[in-house]
């Protein structure tokens, strides 16, 4: 599933960069993140409870920040597995100045495997996008 979008944050690029890559912020903004521990620089072990309303699955896995080009772009990988199957996502996030604001462009792919993919078809796309939005909206709050 392809994911693509743009957000405009009301802050300077450096500030946005710093917040986006702050571990504590990441932990509080990743949807359903119950645990995030740094195991190596820019590598985290995570427990994510993903879904909507009461339809949620718990996945244990990794979050990685790669290809960091301060303050213009980085790549983030999330992968986890649990009883319902697995989740995998990766996105390149780019920051661009826009006056005193910053545009954030993301583009990537998400994959959900196993139970949810095989019976959750109808809402999978919508819910995935919803969670991406949640992530950026939460980030936006942290920046303001």
């Amino acid at each position: 599933m392809k994911l693509e979008g743009k957000y405009t944050f009301k802050a300077a690029r450096q500030k946005v960069w710093d917040v986006l890559l702050d571990q504590k912020v990441l932990a509080s903004c990743l949807p359903g993140c119950e645990r995030l521990e740094e195991v190596a620089p820019d590598q985290f072990e995570a427990r994510l409870k993903i879904g909507v309303a009461s339809v949620k699955g718990t996945y244990d896995g990794k979050v990685r920040i790669l290809e960091k080009h301060p303050i213009s772009s980085y790549r983030m990988e999330v992968e986890g597995s649990g009883a319902p199957g697995f989740v995998k996502g990766e996105a390149t996030i780019s920051l661009e100045d826009k006056g005193d604001k910053t545009d954030i462009l993301y583009s990537g792919e998400a994959q959900i495997g196993g139970l949810v993919a095989s019976i959750g078809q109808r809402m999978l796309g919508g819910v995935t996008k919803l969670m991406v939005n949640q992530f950026f909206k939460a980030m936006e709050k942290k920046i303001q």
């Binding site: 009461s54 339809v55 319902p84 139970l115 019976i119």
Partner: peptide, 20 residues
């Protein structure tokens, strides 16, 4: 979770999509 008619909840339980 509240169980009313169960027409959505029970299948979701059986699929283990939800674990109240």
């Amino acid at each position: 979770k509240i169980l009313a008619g169960g027409q959505s909840l029970v299948p979701m339980l059986n699929f283990r999509l939800t674990r109240p």
